[in-house]
Design a protein around this nucleic acid. Sequence first.
DNA 1: TCCAAGTTGTGAACACCGTCCACAATGCCG
DNA 2: CGGCATTGTGGACGGTGTTCACAACTTGGA
Lengths: 208, 208
Amino acid sequence: MPPPRATYRHGDLRAALLDAGLQLARAGGPDAVVLREATRRVGVSPNAAYRHFADRAALLAAVSDAAQGLAADSMKTALDALTAGGTAAEAARGRLHAVGSGYIAFAQHEPGLFRAAFTVPSDLSEAFSLAKAGRDGLTPFQLLAGVLDELVAAGEIGADRRLGLEFLAWSAVHGLAMLVIDGPLRGLTAELIDATRERLLDMVDSGL
Amino acid sequence: MPPPRATYRHGDLRAALLDAGLQLARAGGPDAVVLREATRRVGVSPNAAYRHFADRAALLAAVSDAAQGLAADSMKTALDALTAGGTAAEAARGRLHAVGSGYIAFAQHEPGLFRAAFTVPSDLSEAFSLAKAGRDGLTPFQLLAGVLDELVAAGEIGADRRLGLEFLAWSAVHGLAMLVIDGPLRGLTAELIDATRERLLDMVDSGL
DNA sequence: TCCAAGTTGTGAACACCGTCCACAATGCCG
DNA sequence: CGGCATTGTGGACGGTGTTCACAACTTGGA
């Protein structure tokens, strides 16, 4: 129930709606981002949204992109928490581990946003879209790809095996995230989930 | 627009609604299973559904269970297509590969049903529910667990490593399925997807 | 400076959805 | 044969996405 606007124009309605949409997604996943509710929270009539988004789907897509940016932030945070040290190879493996951990941590701490981020259909052509990027301008996909490149540079992975490796690592980590959020792993203790995550990341690591 | 029923009672409305729900899910995923449309297809008033399902959620849950049974069928089909031969260890590895392939094949051929099957929240306590079982009475989870047991019996995996192994294999395969259906791998050529699947299954195989 | 044109918000309306209530038709059991 | 639980119907309510016509405001050029 925000107070009535002073001016007739809102100022930045698009951003406000996107923000409300993110709140809704955070609380209830993609299905909870309801156009009318978003406009209600912003204190504007339902139809005003149509000046900034073609559709509910368009609003949801924008929310999804923003949520992917937040996922990228979580991955980046995990990367930044690493202490430098060891050989280049060790460092690169540590960074691969961090990227995966950050991804899963995001799913655990923001399941609604995670679902909103990765349930909306998209394809490879959008994996580099700036709209999906985090604070540092990189998308989750780009962060992963960067770490894989480091592994190649460090000689841990043959350059001939590099192509498409993103999909293997992503699959494993994404799958675990889904199973933890609303699959059979839901409700398991944090310790058990942590242990499973470590084993999974080991599997990825050894399986290249 | 089915012809009006001869009898006032329908006969087996619950099964008919479930079937209509499966059709809807097949065409449009979980969001497409809308209660009113299901009753419409069956030729019954919207409220009739409430005599057999508490909720739209209950109908969707039933659809999800049935879809998991179909996934189990796809996995079982892949298993049955294997030709016996080789050592016990080789056979067990082949069966692990088949289980994963069958799972991904189901996602590719029935993306709507796949989403309906695995997007609905559930937890481990339901992983053995007979409602989710396929023709042979086994759930997808049980099929996977069985193959992992074979690997242990064949000496390919140490018994001490067995616990929770389902989650590693499942994560990888489930993640790839999701990425293929509406993730960045969407729209890739079948050859590329097949190649990625093989590499992924190799990763699982070697990563135990 | 003023006014025409574009932009952005409003209000009313429509169709559709899930769900609840009261009621009717039906099958079953004593 | 008669009562009763079961199963389907009809009508209604509030909520949703979306469209159309219109109003308020901003802006840029004569």
